[in-house]
């Protein structure tokens, strides 16, 4: 019989972990299990009620969804292309533009107030509720009153609608998501740059380096690990993100016309707009699979064990 003294020690960590484990099981493991299950069925809005009530023979197990996805669905090719453009472009903004921005803000702008102001400007979309941020953009691009529209119109860029005309709609999709996402990389990068000891920068200055040479030879090499983290994290988030597209375009018809149907929102529309639950689940399952493959790939390329080592930014 375990002594009473030892018992709480063994149980204690589980008591602390229990709420989190419960949440993970309820909101992650169960939905993933359901998604996998659904993707192998033919559940649609037609047999959904029977399926929920467990009526016998309400649905069949089938591989039809996968056949459809891999050949039968005429839009998959285009959606894959849009997803690639979307993830690639927004990633460029989130991982690389935010890096340039962070270096400018922390290193080049010496004025502390100006630097803080610039950081806050880029954080605004992050702290604004997604719906408010989305509607703000709808106002910004409206041809009558929108400042964004007016500004580009004055430069000679005046599409009938930023929302519906390609490629403006796709540029809009990238800018909207890029602006909100850049702040994530910026927070990681600015704190990493600030953690570089002042003496290293001073030493480089005395050694004869210009600002650009310091950025290239000292700051960027020391930001290698934060950069790898931001790139990995953002790729995975972007593959699964659809909120802003949903808020701005709202329906499958609109995203189709605008050329903004990415995989994640396609899964959403299929399941919740068209009632093709099983097919929607299959599309999202493929996204999960792509995500897992990418995680493994990143770990392989960047060396997971190295990422787990203590910070390299030390003297």
């Amino acid at each position: 019989m375990p002594s009473l003294k030892n018992l709480p020690r063994k149980i204690l960590p589980w008591i602390f972990l229990a709420p989190l484990l419960f949440m993970i099981i309820l909101f992650w493991l169960v939905p993933v299990g359901l998604t996998v299950f659904l993707s192998f069925t033919n559940v649609t809005y037609k047999n959904f009620v029977k399926f929920v009530h467990g009526v016998e023979g309400a649905f069949n197990f089938t591989l039809e969804n996968f056949h459809k996805l891999l050949g039968g669905d005429p839009y998959i090719g285009e959606i894959a292309k849009i997803t690639l453009i979307y993830v690639g472009s927004v990633l460029a903004i989130n991982a690389f533009y935010s890096l340039i921005l962070s270096i400018s803000i922390v290193y080049l702008v010496k004025n502390e107030y100006l630097s803080t102001f610039m950081r806050v400007v880029w954080l605004l979309p992050r702290i604004t509720p997604a719906v408010v941020y989305g509607f703000l953009w709808i106002w910004l691009i409206s041809p009558d009153t929108g400042p964004f529209y007016q500004f580009f119109a004055s430069l000679g860029v005046a599409p009938g609608s930023w929302l519906l005309e390609k490629p403006y709609s796709q540029i809009l999709m990238i800018v909207v998501n890029g602006y909100v996402g850049a702040s994530f990389g910026m927070i990681i990068y600015t704190s990493a740059i600030k953690s570089i000891p002042e003496d290293l920068i001073r030493a480089a200055k005395v050694d004869g380096a210009s600002d650009l040479q310091i950025i290239r030879s000292i700051i960027l090499p020391l930001l290698k690990w934060p950069m790898l983290f931001v790139i990995s994290w953002q790729t995975l988030s972007l593959i699964a993100s659809y909120e802003q597209i949903l808020i701005l375009w709202g329906s499958y018809g609109a995203t189709k016309a605008a050329g903004t149907t990415v995989f994640a929102i396609y899964a959403w529309f299929k399941a919740f707009e068209m009632g093709e639950y099983a097919y929607g689940a299959t599309v999202s399952l493929v996204l999960v699979a792509i995500g897992i493959v990418l995680i493994l790939l990143y770990f392989k390329i960047f060396g997971f064990h190295k990422l787990m080592q203590p910070s390299k930014i030390e003297v």
């Binding site: 000891p197 003496d199 290293l200 001073r202 030493a203 480089a204 200055k205 005395v206 050694d207 004869g208 380096a209 210009s210 030879s217 000292i218 090499p221 020391l222 290698k224 390299k312 930014i313 030390e314 003297v315």
Partner: peptide, 20 residues
């Protein structure tokens, strides 16, 4: 004149060696 054009050499208390 900026440090790079002064031709001074400096040793820091922390040594400030470039870790990479």
């Amino acid at each position: 004149i900026p440090p790079k054009d002064r031709n001074v050499g400096m040793v820091f208390q922390s040594y400030a060696l470039y870790p990479h």
